[in-house]
């Protein structure tokens, strides 16, 4: 975060009071940015109980970012549009799932802008064993860059933690190969096709996203 530190120094040099508090806001956000790399590894999961989750009636999942010092956040469902559900965290990050599969992220830095996951959904339903997916990211110049991957799927019986209990599940491994990147996603799906837990690749800046459905 060298650049961020430099920017903070610049902001310090510009520090001022003003009618709209813009400088102060900028300063606060820059400080927050520097903390991204030093986020304290609070184990949110350990503190969560069904009682806490029940305080809201919205569906919830817990998200963990292993590449960002295992930072965790709770996401609540915000909107449904066809097969797409939008989820939002208390700090303003967003996740879009399509049929329970990660379709997009927002506000995480280096977001997955869209992904074409039609084949993934077919594979989770057991209809295909090989498919394609396309990810789109913004580059440093705000241009959308598309990356295509070919993915193979294997299924096995397993069990997993979700909804505050251990549940029997079908484990589906997705192994994807692209031009410069390879990744392996894992999904735990129950008998009704519902995704209970997943570990999914969201691009080089974010890394993997672990998601555990809670409610």
């Amino acid at each position: 975060m060298k650049i961020a530190s430099m920017a903070l120094l610049c902001a310090l040099a510009l520090a001022a009071c003003s009618s709209d508090g813009a400088t102060k806001k900028t300063f606060t956000e820059l400080s927050a940015l520097i903390r991204v790399s030093k986020a304290p590894a609070v184990n949110l999961r350990a503190q969560l109980t069904p009682e806490i989750a029940a305080q809201t009636d919205a569906p919830l999942f817990l998200l963990t970012l292993p590449q960002r010092d295992a930072a965790q956040a709770l996401f609540a469902q915000e909107q449904t549009s066809g097969a797409n559900t939008s989820w939002r965290s208390g700090s303003g990050e967003g996740i879009v799932l399509q049929g329970g599969v990660l379709q997009a992220t927002r506000g995480l830095g280096g977001d997955l802008i869209t992904s074409d996951v039609a084949d993934v959904r077919a594979a989770l339903a057991g209809r295909i064993h090989r498919g394609e997916r396309v990810h789109r990211h913004l580059d440093g110049e705000d241009k959308l860059i598309a990356e295509a991957y070919v993915c193979d799927y294997t299924r096995s019986a397993d069990s997993t933690q979700a909804y505050f209990q251990t549940l029997p599940a079908t484990r589906i491994n997705e192994s994807c190969t692209g031009l410069v990147q390879e990744f392996d996603n894992t999904y735990w799906v129950d008998g009704t096709g519902r995704v209970l837990r997943a570990i999914e690749w969201a691009g080089p800046a974010i890394g993997y996203i672990e998601r555990e459905q809670l409610q």
Binding site: I3, E29, L33, E78, Q79, T80, S81, G82, S86, R88, S91, G92, E93, G94, V96, R106, G107, L108, G109, G110, D111, I113, H137, L138, D139, G140, E141, D142, A205
Partner: peptide, 21 residues
Amino acid sequence: NPKTPNRYPGGFDRAPFPVTP
């Protein structure tokens, strides 16, 4: 390189409100 000024292209701006269908 000004084409890649940070490691988080697209930035940290908070998520937009989704479209209301």
